[in-house]
Design a protein around this nucleic acid. Structure first.
Length: 477
DNA sequence: TGAAATGTTGGGGCG
DNA sequence: ACGCCCCAACATTTC
């Protein structure tokens, strides 16, 4: 007699509906993580590293509460069926996941095992269950703003307080065998991952600390500061929201608590502009739930046969941060070194890939998938389709970012550029945005030789923009 | 959650 | 005083 809790994107103890159910049930609780065989959109390199550290942190938190984390590998249905036999478990609890591959695994597993034991499925990673948010006509939303209005109204009605973490988890008399964390082989053999491991400590307490820091002050300037990648203007919570060190409900609740503490009935405009970003995450999952094919296919039909370019050398330069456009290269190097990129810069590099280089948005999505610590299929899909213009509520086709003016506008002091492109740090801030335009004397004084210390621009943005507009204009059936 | 081209306005220099 | 040009600053349109 025991309860299995199958963990996936909910690696925490607080506000964890599956754990809450299991503890209330009063029988021994066996937390288990199953490393699944690779399939489409299986976690990429950076995600696996973060998963490794996250599992280690969760195991530590569990053992501090008299429990353990059981690690297994294989197809979940077979693995859990075996575990049920070994432990005599009478119930299985887990929190829903929303990406297509996970849904089909979970659905088949539910049907196969439901006759053997009680199975409870909860919502642990979203503020709302996708099928519950509907337009007046009963269909899914495809535009963000009306989605946000409806979601906000629904949460005002029904979102409860987060569940407390259990003090202790009742342990079974005998623990089932577990693989060691190293046996999951989530870490690469080379040393690349050290930077991102330092940048992203993986415990739930680390996530809570980040949230607290953000609510300490930065949230009050979020609306404008969030656009400046050199500032500490964003929360940096996305990896934790992805693996579940923090639940969106905890975040929502913390903001409302903050407002209540100063006697306000509603969050401030700045606080709301941040919660709005959390709603974009909801919207992405809502779309992926209703349009599961969009991980690989454009949501808008007229893009099905779009003439994307082939440019292997261009793609390589983009990936490596060697395009010669500093804001693009700085972002791509931040990504490689830390496993994240500031959101403003994500839009700029994505526009460069899909518009200036004309490459298929899936090329970008795939690279992000492998390198982002916060890689999340719903967010990644929405973001790339939005930029490419083929998604829901997408950027109009003519919206092409100018990498130089964006850099001048959002990194006016060139501090972000200098941080990630040390070769340009000796240039005066105005010269960093477009070093090929800098006076020869300035380059000389800074000891910068284009082509040696930093590449010349790989294309002419003005021409690339016109070519992109021409391709986009004549798209369609 | 763009940018560039084009249009409009108004101040100032100047003959 | 007046008309003319230039151009910055801002607004509108177009891609």
């Amino acid at each position: 007699m025991s309860t299995l809790v199958w963990l996936r994107h909910d690696l925490r103890l607080a506000d964890q509906p599956a754990f809450d159910f299991a503890v209330r049930r009063g029988e021994p609780v066996i937390p288990v993580f199953v490393l699944e065989p690779p399939g489409p959109w299986a976690p990429g390199g950076a995600s696996r590293v973060f998963l490794h550290d996250s599992l280690a942190a969760l195991a530590a938190a569990l053992s501090a509460r008299g429990s353990q984390l059981v690690l297994r590998a294989g197809a979940p249905q077979a693995v859990l069926a075996a575990l049920i036999r070994e432990t005599g478990a009478t119930a299985l609890a887990f929190n829903r996941r929303y990406e297509p591959a996970g849904r089909s695994v979970d659905g088949a597993l539910f049907e196969a095992l439901r006759t053997q034991l009680e199975i409870k499925v909860f919502n642990g990673s979203l503020l709302s269950n996708p099928p519950d948010i509907r337009t007046g006509g009963g269909g899914p939303y495809r535009v963000f703003t009306p989605f946000w209005r409806t979601l906000h109204a629904a949460l005002r009605q029904s979102l409860g307080a987060p569940l407390p973490a259990p003090d202790r988890l009742p342990a079974p008399a005998r623990w089932p065998t577990s693989l060691s964390l190293d046996e999951l082989q989530l870490l690469p053999h080379h040393a690349w991952s050290q930077g991102l491991r330092e940048r992203w400590p993986a415990a739930a307490t680390d996530a809570e600390r980040s949230l607290a820091r953000f609510l300490e002050g930065p949230v009050d300037a979020y609306g404008t500061a969030r656009d400046f990648p050199a500032e500490e203007g964003v929360s940096g919570l996305s990896p934790y929201l992805h693996l579940g060190q923090l639940s969106p409900r905890q975040v929502w609740h913390a903001v409302h608590e903050r407002a209540a503490q100063r006697g306000a009935l509603e969050p401030s405009a700045e606080e709301l502009s941040w919660l709005r970003q959390l709603a974009w995450r909801e919207f992405a999952h809502h779309l992926l739930w209703h349009y599961p094919q969009t991980t690989d296919a454009p949501l808008r039909e007229e893009f099905a046969h779009f003439p994307w370019c082939e440019d292997a050398a261009g793609y390589r330069a983009w990936c490596r941060g060697e395009t010669g456009f500093p804001i693009v290269d700085a972002g791509m190097r931040e990504l490689w070194l830390t496993g994240t990129m500031h959101n403003r810069v994500r839009m700029i590099v994505a526009s460069f890939l899909t518009k200036d280089l004309g490459l298929h948005w899936l090329r970008g999505a795939t690279w992000f998938w492998d390198t982002l610590v916060d890689a999340n299929l719903a967010n990644n899909t929405l973001g790339w389709q939005w930029t490419a213009g083929c998604g829901a509520d997408a950027a109009p086709y003519f919206r092409v970012f100018n990498p130089v003016s964006q850099s001048e506008k959002f990194d006016p002091q060139g501090r972000y550029l200098a941080r990630w492109l040390p070769a340009l740090a000796a240039l005066s801030p105005p010269d960093r945005h477009a070093p090929w335009r800098a006076p020869a004397l300035s380059l000389k004084a800074a000891g910068v030789v284009l082509g040696r210390d930093y590449p010349p621009p790989m294309l002419d943005h003005g021409e690339a923009r016109l070519a992109a507009l021409a391709r986009l204009k004549q798209r369609g059936p």
